[in-house]
Computed example of a mutant assay.
Amino acid sequence: MLKKFKTDIKKYKTYSGKSTIVLCFTQQGLWALLVYRISHAVFISNAPKFLKKLLLLFCVLGQKWIEIITGISIPYTARIGERFYIGHFGGIIINGNAIIGDNCNISQGVTIGVSGVLENRGTPIIGDNVYIGANAVIAGNISIGNSAVIGANSLVTKNVEARTTVLGVPAVVVSNNSSEHYI
């Protein structure tokens, strides 16, 4: 848990050039990530069932408090890789079944959620090095390939190939540019 959080802080430091202390006091995304990392560690732990349930109760309370003060909702059941970066404050909703790879960036207003019916119902699997622009919605049983770029205000309900940029409602491929210059 601490290893992953340290990689999150390192990424924030790379972008801002600020000290760890300043970042921990000023970056709401880091607050949400810390509570998520602790809660997820409890969730995947081998602690005795009673103790685990008790700890998860406190984790849920902490997550709700963070959600209220930051507008960022990251359930402890979501799976998020290392070096995760939340670019701006607020309006971020991640479904508890979402899977997000390593070294991803998301901006304000992003929703990663459930959609679809019957066998098509599900949540996204997002690869490594993915950049998700402001107010984008990624929903359904889909996959987002490594190094993809999801443009601002896009609605993504179909698979996105690796190293492509999508934009629009519904999102369509607009270029073969990767996320290399965004992350």
Rank of each mutant, 00 (worst) to 15 (best):
L2Y: 11
K4Q: 09
K6S: 11
K6T: 08
K6E: 14
K13Y: 00
G17W: 05
K18P: 00
K18M: 14
S19V: 09
T20L: 04
C24K: 15
T26R: 14
Q27F: 15
W31G: 04
Y36N: 07
I38F: 15
A41G: 09
A41C: 02
A41F: 13
F43H: 15
I44E: 12
I44M: 11
S45I: 13
A47K: 10
P48G: 03
P48E: 02
K53W: 05
K53T: 08
W65L: 15
I68D: 04
I69R: 14
I72L: 13
I74N: 02
T77C: 03
A78E: 06
A78S: 15
R79P: 00
G81E: 03
Y85K: 03
G90R: 14
G91Q: 10
N97W: 02
I100E: 01
G101A: 02
D102V: 04
D102W: 01
D102M: 02
N103F: 05
N105G: 03
N105I: 12
I106C: 01
S107M: 14
G109A: 04
V110Y: 01
V110T: 00
T111G: 09
G113A: 08
G113C: 07
S115L: 13
G116V: 03
G116R: 10
R121Q: 10
T123G: 01
I126S: 09
D128C: 06
N129T: 05
N129M: 04
V137H: 04
V137C: 13
N141I: 02
N146G: 08
V149S: 07
S154K: 08
L155W: 02
T157E: 00
E161Q: 13
T164R: 10
V166A: 10
A171C: 03
V172N: 07
V173F: 00
V174L: 04
V174N: 01
S175W: 08
E180H: 12
